[in-house]
């Protein structure tokens, strides 16, 4: 997709540049939202949690801006070939990143509900899982910015590790619940948090697939994808 030269109509390059800028901006906000939601969860910080929920509106606003920009480019520039694929990929990536922001918001929403006197040590592995998910989001959007499909595919492979995290946390939380029923409500929330993080990884993988499509015009070829066997993941 890395193009040999600029468009004869320079304004077209500016339009595409602006679109890419918006996606990067969204990605940065989504990555921060994941980090802050987890921090709020760890600290029981209601204020920060409220902030994450408020900030999600910014991500939504940029998504709408991306939609407008894409419709405008298609209408005015009639993009073709790799240009067309890139514009379509940008539109889909914006939708996915908006979903990632929603998951972060959802984690933040649980913060006040998790607060109880039986507050369990919010499992040491959950923040690590969150960091891994946030890194995937950051790296996949860097790959989009760099138009680097190989880097994007490499990110897909990390999704398996994230899935393993989820399985392990699932088992730990079930053990907690069995041992002490008073933690059930709290553990149920944490289970959702882990599930959201796992979904964020799936969405990052989707973004990687779109980067590949934009570059090559084909889906990722029979990638070794760990088929969901019988596991709590599904």
């Amino acid at each position: 997709m890395a193009s040999s030269q600029e468009h004869t109509v320079k304004a077209f390059d500016q339009d595409i540049g602006q679109l890419r800028g918006l996606i990067s901006q969204m990605g940065g906000l989504a990555e921060a939202a994941i980090g802050n939601a987890m921090l709020a969860l760890q600290r029981g910080d209601h204020e920060l949690a409220a902030q994450v929920r408020a900030d999600d509106k910014k991500i939504d606003a940029i998504q709408h801006e991306v939609e407008r920009a894409v419709v405008r480019i298609i209408a005015l520039r009639a993009p073709m070939a790799n240009d067309l694929r890139e514009v379509v990929a940008a539109l889909k990536i914006a939708t996915v990143v908006e979903r990632i922001g929603d998951y972060a918001k959802n984690i933040a929403k649980r913060v006040p509900q998790i607060d109880s006197e039986y507050r369990i040590d919010p499992i040491s592995t959950l923040p690590a899982m969150a960091r891994m998910a946030a890194d995937m989001v950051r790296d996949v959007l860097d790959a989009f910015a760099a138009r680097d499909p190989d880097a994007a595919i490499a990110i897909c492979e990390r999704d398996d590790a994230l899935d393993d995290f989820y399985d392990s946390i699932f088992r730990t939380l079930v053990t907690y619940m069995v041992e002490n029923p008073k933690t059930i409500s709290q553990c149920a929330h944490l289970l959702f948090v882990a599930k959201h993080l796992e979904r964020i990884g799936d969405h990052a993988t989707n973004v990687a697939e779109m980067i590949h499509f934009a570059a090559h015009g084909t889906p990722i070829a029979d990638r070794e994808r760990a088929e969901p066997t019988f596991s709590p993941r599904s």
Binding site: S3, S4, Q5, E6, H7, T8, V9, F12, P79, M80, A81, N82, D83
Partner: peptide, 9 residues
Amino acid sequence: TKDYITGRY
């Protein structure tokens, strides 16, 4: 072909 149809010719 790509350069031509995308207006980079």
